[in-house]
């Protein structure tokens, strides 16, 4: 079965979808770059955005590649490659694939038990469960942004700047939730206030934050602005090395 799941025809099907999405990204990127130039944005700033986004994404992408490798043992390589290149999320795929496997009567998500129908059903469920963001975007992206833009315009007349502050606040909420979960995991992960849970994520976050402070110091105080493009990737690498050394 695993040989069928790694066949050339599956690579062609999955590869075509990945290639289509890559083409969409290129079209959006070129349009945005041209628009930036047309409205007078600094080309250096646009290029720095591209560099920083590429360097930022390399390490998480290697983590995602590990997800492909992890799933390739049971689902073959082409399907996990497609799922994690397009729409998918690392934390989502395994969970849904496992749940789908249970529904089709497999004891566990494994190549040994896999049948063609089980695979097709698992693949369908993996697609359907996570497609809602795309559907909502299709129907409501324009209207939702227009509505928010209208509200912003009304408010701009009196007190400018809350929209931007709200986005920063939302992100602070997001980061706080994850940092809180690492601390909570250590303190009560193995029983309330036992302090026997996993300390590694807390240390990793601390090391990563410490390196980030160093990068920001060098960029802001020592005029090494070019470091900004590598600050997140460098800090993450330091944090990950700390996890390996622990």
């Amino acid at each position: 079965m695993i040989a069928q799941l790694n066949s050339i025809s599956l690579y062609v099907i999955c590869g075509s979808i990945v290639a289509f999405v890559a083409a969409v990204c290129i079209v959006f990127m070129v349009r945005a770059y041209k628009a930036g130039i047309a409205i007078g944005m600094d080309p250096a700033k646009l290029k720095r955005t591209l560099t920083s986004s590429v360097t930022f994404s390399v390490l998480p992408s290697i983590g995602i590649l590990l997800g492909v490798i992890a799933l390739s043992g049971s689902l073959g390589t082409p399907w996990p490659w497609l799922r994690l290149s397009v729409i998918g999320a690392l934390h989502y795929e395994t969970q849904v694939a496992q749940a789908a496997a249970e529904q089709v009567g497999l004891h566990t998500l494994s190549a040994a038990e896999m049948t063609p129908q089980a695979f097709a059903t698992i693949a369908l469920l993996m697609s359907v469960c996570i497609m809602w963001g795309m559907i909502l975007s299709f129907f409501f992206n324009k209207g939702y942004l227009k509505k928010l833009g209208g509200q912003k315009k009304e408010k701009t007349d009196s007190k400018p700047g809350f929209g931007d502050m709200a986005m920063t606040a939302m992100f602070i909420g997001l980061v706080s939730t994850y940092i809180g979960s690492y601390i909570g995991g250590f303190v009560s992960g193995e029983g309330l206030f036992t302090f026997k849970g996993d300390l590694t994520p807390v240390i990793v976050a601390l090391v990563s934050g410490l390196f980030m402070s160093g990068f920001i110091y060098l960029a802001e105080k020592k005029n090494m602005v070019w470091l900004e493009s590598f600050s997140i990737a460098g800090s993450m690498l330091a944090g990950m090395i700390a996890a390996i050394l622990l």
């Binding site: 390490l59 998480p60 992100f171 980061v175 706080s176 994850y178 940092i179 690492y182 590694t200 994520p201 807390v202 990793v204 976050a205 601390l206 090391v207 990563s208 934050g209 390196f211 980030m212 600050s231 997140i232 800090s235 993450m236 690498l237 330091a238 944090g239 990950m240 996890a243």
Partner: peptide
């Protein structure tokens, strides 16, 4: 955690 430590 490495990502959110730096972003935090």
């Amino acid at each position: 955690p490495a990502l959110f430590g730096a972003m935090a």
